[in-house]
Amino acid sequence: MSIILDHVNYTYGEGTPLETAALKDVCLQIPDGQFVGIIGHTGSGKSTLVQHLNGLLKATSGHIYFNGEDISDKEYDRKKLRSRVGLVFQYPEHQLFETDVFTDVCFGPKNLGLDRRETELRAYDALRKVGLPDSLFYQSPFDLSGGQKRRAAIAGVLAMKPEVLILDEPTAGLDPRGRDEILGQIKELQTTTGMTILLVSHSMEDVAEYVDRIIVMNQGSVMYDGVPREVFAHYRELESVGLAAPQVTYILHELRDRGLDVDAAATTIGEAADTVMRALGRSSGPGERQIRTNA
């Protein structure tokens, strides 16, 4: 069971002077339970890509299979698809509209035609999962702080109990702590529920620590697809398309250029410190063992 994209193309404004190819021959397979980062700068096609996965946009050509079924098939129930593939848009707090947070979160499950009891159970569960305290449940969503609003909005999608959760720039505009909290919560969601998660971002640094796999989009095509350390090895090419590897990559390459024997593929601060310590000829105890088990 998984998502498969088979030669997917998408063209905006077909047949007009503004015609642009937003997706070009995209082939991907996303297995269940994976935590995937989709990286690209503005206009690279990453947002267009994820809108295909829950049927909001329809591929100009090519096929998308969700759990083995072609979603562009006429018989396919796209409304149901939207509840199974949850999509949280950028600045999701801009879609809050109810008089209180709880009722707003109920909107999704209610649209699925669930009874009141099930709807409220799901809403409650979703709000707990995003870590919003009970005291805020009956506040107006417009009175919450920026970070709280965002959580409430994410809960609104989670309440539909999707099998796949897609988040488009969930940390945009948040401060560092707010960003870490949201990303941490998403990671926890993935480990506890086994949900497939697709995280769209323009920052490698932010996602490197959390994801299993990075897909780099550029000009509508998949540029790189692999585990973070593989992708970051192409840091020069990434730079030429307006992206950057985490700063750690640059530091390690700088060190290696100066003759220090470090493993430049380390992606986190901990790994980097370990390899630097080894290069300096000092053992660093537990960290080193960890590297071995990783390798």
């Binding site: 401060d175 560092p176 702590r177 640094e205 985490p246 700063q247 750690v248 530091i251 601060i269 901990g270 980097a272 410190a273 630097v276 310590m277 000092r282 660093s284």
Partner: peptide, 17 residues
Amino acid sequence: RLDVPQVTLLAYELKKR
């Protein structure tokens, strides 16, 4: 509640070790 650039963080980590 603030971030530190990764290079500063790495230097800090190395110093701790």
